[in-house]
């Protein structure tokens, strides 16, 4: 184990997978000679050459589609779509094409490809660079969506995504870019679809992921009178139902915390599933905490108010636990 920054962990994953498998290629805007807009692809060009590491024009649809075609023809492309917001420009290739190739050909073709994007939520990047669009992606059958909130998970999930035989969307947190933590050198794979229990507890389950996960960790440290179980989903789709449902069956309470707007979000899917599957065990209404139904604002004080901050999370934890069922 070595102490590694979040971005360096991503960089290591790319280096290791490209060295392990010649079919892995990296394409995207500014990924080769510049080494990536935020250095995630640093050194790849020097190590693996201009055939396998390519700068592209600012043509998100064409480069995602080209990655798809190359994947169908036997390669494992990792395409960088710089900010998650920019995937909207390539949405046909993601939603109509890559996600459906296996299904539309009844398995005759597959698309072993990775799309990486930064979510810059929390970094004052404004309405078109700071959106949390994971629900858009998770709503598309055939597309897997992962989001590591720690350096170790960012690395291990990216490696798993590259080895997956279908398209995987990998979201990365710019707000965690310089966070340091222990990361394994070489092989460590987090299976796609497995959540991590970050903190064990008895009174309440908090499910979170991505950019909200570090703030949930801070919040839980501030709570002393409630025993909180924290689950970092890590994979948004397909999500780890067993771990979440098992935890809620134990605690009887669920709070979902995410940075995306609450309405029509991934939290709704989890809440509805828990409401159905854990009806008998629930001791309080399922709650969701996320951004208000507004675009991501730029100004620091606005963005601070927009994202669930630790105090808001502790307040919601307390409110959920204090809810008492009226005797009927």
């Amino acid at each position: 184990m070595t102490v590694t920054k979040y971005w360096q962990a991503i960089n290591q994953a790319l280096h290791e997978e490209m060295a392990r498998d010649d079919s892995v290629i990296v394409i995207g805007e500014d990924v080769a000679a510049p080494g990536g807009p935020f250095a995630a692809t640093k050194g790849l060009l020097e190590s693996f050459g201009p055939d396998r590491v390519r700068d592209t024009p600012i043509s998100e649809a064409a480069i995602v589609g080209a990655a798809l075609g190359a994947a169908m023809a036997g390669y494992r492309p990792v395409v960088e779509v710089m900010f998650l917001d920019f995937v909207t420009v390539a949405m046909d290739q993601v939603v109509n094409q890559a996600a459906k190739v296996s299904y539309m050909s009844a398995g005759n073709f597959s698309a072993p490809m990775v799309i990486r994007s930064i979510c810059a939520s929390g970094r004052r990047t404004g309405p078109q660079h700071a959106q949390n669009l994971e629900a858009w992606l998770a709503h598309v059958p055939g597309l897997k969506v992962v989001w590591g909130s720690t350096p170790a998970d960012a690395k291990a999930l990216l490696k798993a995504a590259i080895r997956d035989d279908g398209p995987v969307y990998v979201i990365e947190s710019l707000a965690e870019w310089s966070t340091r933590a222990e990361v394994a050198e070489g092989e460590e794979i987090v299976p796609i679809g497995s959540a991590a229990v970050r903190h064990e507890g008895e009174d309440l389950t908090v499910v979170t992921w991505g950019g909200a996960a570090p703030r949930v960790a801070t919040a839980v440290d501030l709570v002393h009178d409630v025993s909180v179980e924290v689950i970092d989903l890590r994979t948004i789709s397909p999500w780890d139902r067993e771990t979440v449902l098992g935890s809620v069956r134990k605690t009887g309470r669920l709070l979902v915390v995410h940075d995306a707007v609450v309405e029509f979000g991934v939290g709704a899917e989890i809440a509805a599933t828990v409401a159905t599957e854990c009806f008998d065990q629930l001791r309080a209404p399922v709650r969701r905490l996320g951004a208000p139904y507004a675009p991501a604002p730029f100004a620091p004080q606005l963005e601070e108010a927009y994202l669930p901050h630790p105090e808001a999370i502790t307040r919601e934890i307390t409110r959920t636990v204090q809810t008492v069922r009226n005797a009927s």
């Binding site: 649809a61 589609g65 798809l68 075609g69 190359a70 005759n108």
Partner: peptide, 27 residues
């Protein structure tokens, strides 16, 4: 679509198949 004879696929989105052909050429 038919992998055996290189048909990467017909496509119901106008223009949607063009980048895939570019990807085949890249491969």
């Amino acid at each position: 679509a038919d992998n055996a004879v290189g048909i990467l696929g017909a496509n119901a989105i106008v223009g949607g198949g063009i980048p895939m052909a570019v990807g085949g050429a890249l491969a």
